[in-house]
Nucleic acid binder design. Structure first.
Length: 709
DNA sequence: GTGCATTCCTTTTTT
DNA sequence: AGGAATGCAC
């Protein structure tokens, strides 16, 4: 098959043909980025510049990888062997399965999902006798995650720790890591950190992969974190054929460690880099692009650029002011039903929101009005209780060090094994130097508890079956033998749905049926832990609902952007930090540029939030859009005027004002530490005594959430 | 050891 | 408002 580059515009062709040396492709929203990447890979393969396994293509989501695979197959024919393609995390799993033993990782390691990770933090805190009530384990985990993304190891964290909270983290982090080790488990961040460590410290392994990957491509480079940055640049050292694609305006993952400077500094890292700018947009009308530009160009931290399109004109952006969130949802749904009547395909319609919590009201409205919908994200597949249970069973059988998974299912379904029996078993295991699972499997008389004995017999039987059953049979065997299905067969709709979910899991597992026993189990567990979302199949057309983050990379004819309110979007949590405000602005840019033809922005004068009513002002992002691009419905008055906090300089002077306000002896209230007394102020730091609970703290005036009382 | 009621805590975004 | 975690009665 002949690859036809005539399908591409001159810049796109340039990007495809520039195979050798470092290349940066600055690809604006809707500029055909995926097309360029797929053609580029196809081009390299077709020109026989490299074998498929010598190409590494990193994408941001599994979905993006799947789509790219499909499109390459379409270009070159189904028979083509595909390159290494996937997310950073999935590629790291692949590498660690092969070579992880160099960094002390057993081959059968478990991958803990976020809730397992949080449980592990809790356990670490319990071991340290830290109160889970006073210190939020989630926040602790957040800090550990950040550290790992910066490749800061447990032992080194203390050197960076600054302030009360980080000292706590410094004590928890090593214990957390130790527990993961005990269970032969890793968290998501470990996948990156261990792979980086592996490549940094083990020359043989490093050179193996450096020589293997002749061509490396990284999508969404603006959203890479430090660990990912180290990884790709290390891998690219041998051939230097590294091609990074991204758009600094679409960097929206700083909260999980993404560093926008990675893309901004590409030229510094590779002074000989070829830079290709894709600025022609094939997606949206000029009006939509103008609106998006009006919002994002207020950011200071960006490279100057402007998208253009041949689709001049277009409809104005409809802004609807609703009385409350219920009316907002109803307006969206009825407008979509009007569109449907006029022949619009529901697959071309999306409702986007800032937070997952907003989906509920919209979902209700869809049900009430009978509009077909699907939610992307929300409750993830692996977050469902029944799925977690089944996966825990599989992990126990796969990784006999994984006592955390054992604890999850040892009494599910109920088999009269309470917390006390578990603690006893744990103690015995510790004495014999085995994991609880291994002890149970050993067949020794481990407990006077009849219930435990019975469970041990069950476990041994399941363990034996791993060798002879393929993954589909194995799951079926587990749900029957353990009584899990029986527990769910009580006729309630809820449990019916659970059974359906497990069947769905089995159909996912069918992909690995042919790999045979053990291998299939291994492949299945590795992949399913990193699976980001459930794909809900809805018969016929349906509207798609999701967060703006989840919508990145997608496009729709009609986009409804709900909750355009100060406090929601931009979210109130970012008001204290101008860099985060810039990220919200980029998020708004991403949201607006999802629309091809029509964009609707909604806000409600009154909204139920946290159980209480709030009256939010219209989002500043609406106000940023020039009036001649908007058309209003409902009782719109005007957008919030928040310029004072929008600019870093002004905001700083506000902080300085506050500094002048405080003097020794003043009583202040801190969001976290409570009430305290100001002891003194030096430069931009303030020293406050918070009493016996937290002692004396030095806080940055600029950042501390302080209030004078 | 299990089941129920009450409290309390949450919500930013995700691999 | 809703879900998880805790505390209390069987």
């Amino acid at each position: 098959m002949e690859l036809n580059l005539k399908d591409l515009n001159p810049e796109q062709q340039e990007a495809v043909k520039a195979t050798e040396g470092p290349v940066l492709i600055l690809a604006g929203a809707g500029s055909g980025k995926t097309k360029v990447l797929t053609y580029r890979i196809a081009h390299i393969l077709e020109q026989k510049l490299a074998a498929p396994e010598e190409i590494l293509a990193v994408t941001f989501t599994n979905k993006a990888a799947a789509e790219m695979k499909q499109r390459i197959a379409k270009l070159l024919g189904d028979s083509v062997t595909l390159p290494w393609m996937g997310t950073f995390h999935s590629i790291c799993v692949k590498i660690l399965k092969r070579d992880g033993h160099h960094v002390g990782l057993g081959a059968n390691f478990s991958i803990y999902d976020p809730s397992d990770q949080q449980d592990t933090v809790k356990e670490a805190m319990e071991r340290l006798k830290l109160s889970v009530k006073e210190i939020n384990p989630r926040a602790v985990h957040g800090h550990i995650s950040t550290a790992k993304n910066e490749l800061v190891k447990p032992a080194d964290y203390a050197n960076f720790a600054n302030g009360y909270f980080q000292e706590i983290v410094a004590s928890v982090y090593p214990v957390y890591q130790e527990i993961l080790r005990e269970n032969n488990a890793v968290d998501f961040d470990d996948l990156l950190m261990y792979t980086a460590e592996l490549l940094q410290n083990h020359a043989q392994v490093r050179e193996k992969y450096q020589r293997l990957f002749k061509y490396i491509m990284v999508d969404e480079y603006q959203d890479t974190n430090n660990a990912q940055y180290v990884l790709v640049n290390l891998l690219a050292k041998e051939y230097r054929n590294i091609c990074c694609v991204g758009d600094d305006d679409q960097s929206i993952y700083a909260f999980r460690g993404a560093n926008i400077r990675n893309i901004l500094n590409f030229n510094r890292d590779y002074p000989d880099a070829k830079v290709v700018k894709l600025e022609q947009n094939y997606r949206s009308t000029q009006k939509i692009l103008d609106a998006a530009h009006a919002v994002v160009s207020k950011n200071k931290n960006r490279t100057a650029k402007k998208l253009w399109t041949q689709k001049a004109g277009g409809d104005a952006i409809t802004v609807f002011t609703a009385e409350n969130e219920r009316q907002e949802a109803e307006w969206v749904v009825s407008r979509i039903q009007q569109l449907e009547k006029s022949g619009v395909d529901l697959e071309e319609v999306a409702i986007l929101y800032r937070t997952n919590a907003q989906s509920r009201g919209l979902e209700e409205a869809c049900v009430r009005f009978g509009l077909a919908y699907r939610i992307v994200g929300g409750v993830r597949f692996y977050e469902r209780k029944e799925i977690k249970d089944i996966l825990a069973y599989l992990r126990v059988l796969y990784n006999p060090a994984d006592d955390a998974s054992l604890k999850r299912i040892i009494n599910v379904p109920k088999r009269a094994i309470g917390p006390k029996a578990v603690v006893d078993l744990q103690a015995k295991a510790k004495l014999s130097g085995l994991s609880m699972i291994k002890l149970l499997l050993s067949g020794e008389d481990v407990s006077e508890s009849k219930a435990i004995e019975k469970f041990a017999i069950l476990l041994r039987e399941l363990n034996a079956s791993v060798q002879r059953l393929n993954i589909v049979e194995l799951i079926g065997h587990i749900v029957e033998q353990t009584g899990y299905f029986e527990m769910l067969r009580d006729g309630t709709a809820e449990n019916e749905a659970r059974i359906e979910n497990i069947k769905e899991l089995i159909s996912v597992a069918a992909k690995y049926e042919e790999a045979g026993p053990v291998t299939g189990l291994s492949m299945f567990l590795d992949e399913v832990s990193l699976l980001e979302e459930e794909v809900q199949n809805v018969e016929g057309g349906a509207v798609t609902m999701m967060t703006i983050h989840a919508a990145k990379g997608l496009e729709f004819e009609h986009v409804f952007l709900v909750g355009m309110e100060e406090g929601l979007f931009p979210h109130s949590r970012v008001f204290t930090d101008p860099t985060e405000l810039e990220e919200e602005r980029r998020l708004a840019y991403v949201a607006i540029t999802r629309a091809k033809h029509n964009l609707y922005m909604l806000h409600a004068d009154s909204r139920l939030y946290f159980g209480s009513r709030q009256n939010n002002l219209v989002s500043r992002f609406v106000g940023d859009i020039p009036e001649n691009l908007r058309s209003h419905e409902g009782g719109y008055t005007k957008a919030a005027e928040w310029e004072a906090v929008d600019s870093f300089d002004d905001w700083k002077s506000a902080a300085e004002d506050r500094a002048v306000d405080l003097s020794p002896g003043d009583k202040v209230k801190h969001n976290y530490f409570g009430v305290g007394t100001v002891l003194g102020i030096k430069d931009d730091m303030v020293k406050i005594n918070f009493g016996s609970a937290y002692g004396t703290k030095e806080l940055a005036l600029e950042f501390a959430p302080l209030e004078k009382i």
